[in-house]
Simulated scan of single mutants.
Amino acid sequence: MVTHLYLGVVIFAVFAVAVGQPAIKVICSKDSISVKWRVGPQLVPYAARLFIGSCTPSEWRVLDSGEGEASFDYKFSECGFARKMKGKHMVYQGDVSFRPQAKGKPAVFQQPIECIFKRPAGWIPSFMNPGAGASEGRSKLVFHMALLNDQLTGVAKTNVVPLGSFMPIWAAVEQKSHQPLLLLMEECVAATTPQLLPNSQIHPIIGNKGCLLESKTGSSMFLPRYHSSAIILYLQSFSFGIGEEVYIHCNLMVWDHDALDKTKKACHVTEHGSWELLDDPSLSSLCNCCESTCASKMKRATDWESSMNYNSVLGPIIITDQSNAHSNATLVASDSAIDSQSSLSSTN
């Protein structure tokens, strides 16, 4: 707390002692939060400077002991809580703080709080609704592909990704007049060129008709679907093309969700080390071929099947090795900087 003494107000030292061991109780409800915060007698005159997010206490009382108790009962939306989607969970994040100075000045005390819920069935971020973002069409189907932000709440604002962090890649198809269809990623590779050429260097990501190869050695996975017409590849960034422009090339396919087989599937390795079928774990035996070759009976593809495939390209994405950057800190910044304003584009 010494950093605040430059304000020349001795009472700041008192504040530091008063909030040093705060008694904070948090109760999370479906769309709201209830917090009780007991503070020492020194803070009783400053109750109006206690906050949860952007909200002041909804109730305040002085206890017989001389201490004060602030109660906060608010909806998450009222106090500026951040909503994030993490896998199967919805997370609301905020903080309680003591801010004796006007808005914009640093808090003397701040403690983060979280409420974690199971993600509601059918919940869809607004940007994922059909029609959002750039798209391409084929046979009356419109495909989308984008890099999401860390919270999975919108399109990423930067294409610079630190090595080892996650790149959530979202793909979706607008079904229009079609019956409900299942979107699959049949094959994905990373390359340093926006077009795949005979001499292009590539890094396999998904292969063998829907097997997430990257999940065998890292933490990559398919996230639970919010709709059959969309899929999110939660891809852990890799060392291929470090510092260069990397493009993700994917062959997207739509299929009947009731007709999955060894060549029409989405499989990843779970934390237990076994292959699992994203859309029905009870049928994970369809993924057994991921360790060999996934092939169906020989037959010629119909025109309908051919029209259900679409090649999409996402990029450029720039993967940076921060540990290597630190070891080379003596380099001139202008020589090692990466333009974080590069735009993320999707081409066919």
Rank of each mutant, 00 (worst) to 15 (best):
I206Y: 02
P204A: 07
Q236V: 09
S343H: 07
S215I: 03
M167R: 01
T217Y: 09
T217E: 03
T193W: 02
D31M: 09
Q21R: 12
G122P: 11
E186N: 14
S65P: 03
S219K: 08
K75L: 11
Y226F: 14
K105R: 14
N348D: 08
S274I: 12
P224R: 07
T270M: 01
Y6W: 12
G210V: 02
E59C: 02
V10W: 13
V173P: 00
D95W: 14
K176E: 14
V39S: 02
A259P: 02
L252R: 00
I318Y: 00
S139W: 12
T293S: 15
P194C: 01
G133S: 05
D303A: 15
I317N: 01
G94S: 15
H89T: 11
C290P: 04
V313L: 02
H249N: 07
V14D: 14
S306E: 10
G164T: 03
A329F: 10
G133D: 00
A134V: 10
K262E: 14
I169C: 02
A190D: 07
H227S: 11
I206T: 06
A301D: 14
C28M: 06
K140E: 11
V19I: 12
D95L: 07
P130I: 12
S200P: 12
S65A: 09
E187K: 14
Q151A: 15
P204M: 08
A132I: 01
